[in-house]
C-alpha cells in the first residue's frame, strides 16, 4: 500500500471500446489520472481480450488472448490498470484459471508460444483510486465537491463476479463505487439493480433483451431518485446511454438519466476542465443536470 506521496505509475490496458465507442472513458481516465499525478503508460500492441464472445465459442482461445496481453503487459512498468470491466474480468479470470492448473497453463503456453506470465497485478481503476491512491488523498484532491448530486452506482456483472476471481470487492454486496464517489462529495442512492446484467453481449444480436434488462435498470434507478448513473464499463454505458431512447420508446416512460463514467464525475470534482472529459460524447446529455447542480 503506497499511501505516501511516492509517485504511482501503472501500465494501462484501455481495451477496444476505449479507442472507439467509449473514447470519452479513455479521455477522462487520462484527464483524471493526470490531475491526480498517477502515471499511465499504455501496453504496446495490446490486442482485444475477446470479451464474452471468445469464451462463448472457445475457452482456450479466450485464455490465450488474455495470456498474450499479459505477456505484452510485461513490457511496461508497474501494475496493470484496466478501465473496462469486461477486459478486467477476462484478465483476472485467465490469471485465476491458469494459476493452479498446470495442464491448462501448458496448453495456453503452447498457443501463445511462450510461458504465461501470471505475476502482474491487474487492477481496475476503482481499486487504484480506492486502495493505492487512497480515499483520503482523493478527498483532499477534490476542488469542486459533487454535493447535491444523487448518483446511482451501477456495477453490472463482471466487476465483482464470480467470487474469488476479480477480487475487487464483495461479489454480491460491493461498496467500492459508492466509497469512491462519496469521497468526491456526491450522494449515493440505495437501489435494487446495482448488480443486475444489462445484457451487454446481446446488444447486436438480440436487442429485445437489452430493452427489457436495461429498461429494468433505468426504471429502478429512476425510482430510487437518482439524478444520474455512474458506470465503470463501456458496454454497460453503451446500453444505458445509446439505447436509452429506444428503451424509453418501448416502455413509454421518459427517464432522461445520463450514464457517466466514474472518471468523468471524479474528473469534474478534482477540477479537470470539462473539455477534457468528453461529456459531449454521451447521447443523454449530462450538461443540463451538471449546470443545474453548479458543477459546470
Amino acid at each position: 500500500m503506497s499511501r505516501t506521496a511516492t509517485a504511482l505509475n501503472y501500465g494501462y490496458y484501455p481495451g477496444c471500446s476505449l479507442h472507439a465507442s467509449a473514447r470519452e472513458y479513455d479521455q477522462s481516465t487520462r484527464g483524471l489520472f493526470g490531475a491526480l499525478g498517477i502515471g499511465l503508460s499504455e501496453v504496446p500492441d495490446w490486442l482485444c481480450c475477446g470479451a464474452t464472445p471468445a469464451h462463448n465459442v472457445d475457452r482456450l482461445l479466450s485464455l490465450a488472448l488474455s495470456a498474450k496481453n499479459l505477456t505484452l503487459a510485461e513490457k511496461v512498468e508497474g501494475d496493470l490498470a484496466v478501465a473496462c470491466a469486461a477486459c478486467f474480468s477476462r484478465l483476472k479470470t485467465t490469471q485465476h484459471e491458469l494459476k493452479d492448473d498446470a495442464e491448462k497453463r501448458s496448453q495456453v503456453g503452447r498457443a501463445i508460444d511462450g510461458p504465461v506470465p501470471l505475476a502482474k497485478k491487474v487492477k481496475h481503476l476503482l481499486e487504484i483510486l480506492d486502495s493505492d491512491f487512497g480515499l483520503e488523498r482523493l478527498q483532499q484532491a477534490v476542488k469542486r465537491p459533487l454535493s447535491g448530486l444523487k448518483v446511482a452506482c451501477y456495477y453490472g456483472c463482471l466487476l465483482t463476479r464470480p467470487p474469488g476471481v476479480p477480487q475487487l470487492d464483495d461479489a454480491e454486496a460491493p461498496t467500492i463505487m459508492e466509497r469512491v464517489i462519496e469521497a468526491a462529495g456526491a450522494q449515493t442512492v440505495a437501489w435494487s439493480h446495482r448488480l443486475e446484467c444489462c445484457g451487454a453481449g446481446f446488444t447486436l444480436s438480440r436487442p429485445e433483451v437489452i430493452l427489457k434488462l436495461t429498461g429494468d435498470i433505468l426504471a429502478a434507478a429512476k425510482e430510487a431518485g437518482a439524478d444520474c448513473l455512474m458506470v465503470a464499463c463501456p458496454l454497460c454505458q453503451g446500453n444505458l446511454d445509446l439505447r436509452q431512447q429506444e428503451v424509453e420508446k418501448a416502455s413509454g416512460t421518459r427517464y432522461g438519466l445520463p450514464a457517466l463514467y466514474l472518471t468523468q464525475l471524479l474528473g469534474l470534482a478534482v477540477g479537470v476542465p470539462a473539455s477534457q472529459l468528453g461529456l459531449d460524447g454521451l447521447l443523454v446529455s449530462p450538461q443540463g443536470l451538471l449546470r443545474e447542480k453548479g458543477l459546470l
Binding site: H55, C157, L158, E172, C197
Partner: peptide, 8 residues
C-alpha cells in the same frame, strides 16, 4: 449472457 450470477 455469461453474467456469472448463477456461478456466484
Amino acid at each position: 449472457a455469461s453474467c456469472e450470477t448463477c456461478t456466484t
